[in-house]
Amino acid sequence: MSVKQISVFLENKKGALAEVTSFIASHGINLYALSIADSQDFGILRIITDNPDNAREMLKNEGYTVTATSVLAVEIDDTPGSMASILNVLTKADVIVEYTYAFIGKAANKAYMIFRVDNKEKANEALIESGISTIDQKDLFLK
């Protein structure tokens, strides 16, 4: 089970983020979560939306460098230690986390963790074995 994340390659300069988010807004796409990675020259904006295929197409047509990445989404209790327990499972399973970020879900006392890992299948298996389930795109916004 995984979620489709859209990544946009941006110039690391003033206004770049405002420009792309305004563009996304103007097309009525809602951002559920985002994270940014940056280097001196560039930034990578990663977003979770309700309609990733649509978002990707629109951004691409506008001339943005954009890609879709399949990432793991895990629903966790909004309590101390939830994140650590997941990371411990992944570490034990020898899974490397490339990056992760969190957002608060619509359900009360729940949070979502997004993970990009080097081996999704292995990560999924290890999490299921530990009784932690990953969720799918459609489940992400129903709750």
Binding site: Q5, S7, A37, I44, T67, Y99
Partner: peptide, 14 residues
């Protein structure tokens, strides 16, 4: 220019 086809979304890969 980095095109969408070559774009992978981690800083390390770029």
């Amino acid at each position: 220019e980095l095109s969408s086809e070559q774009f992978s979304d981690t800083v390390r890969e770029i």
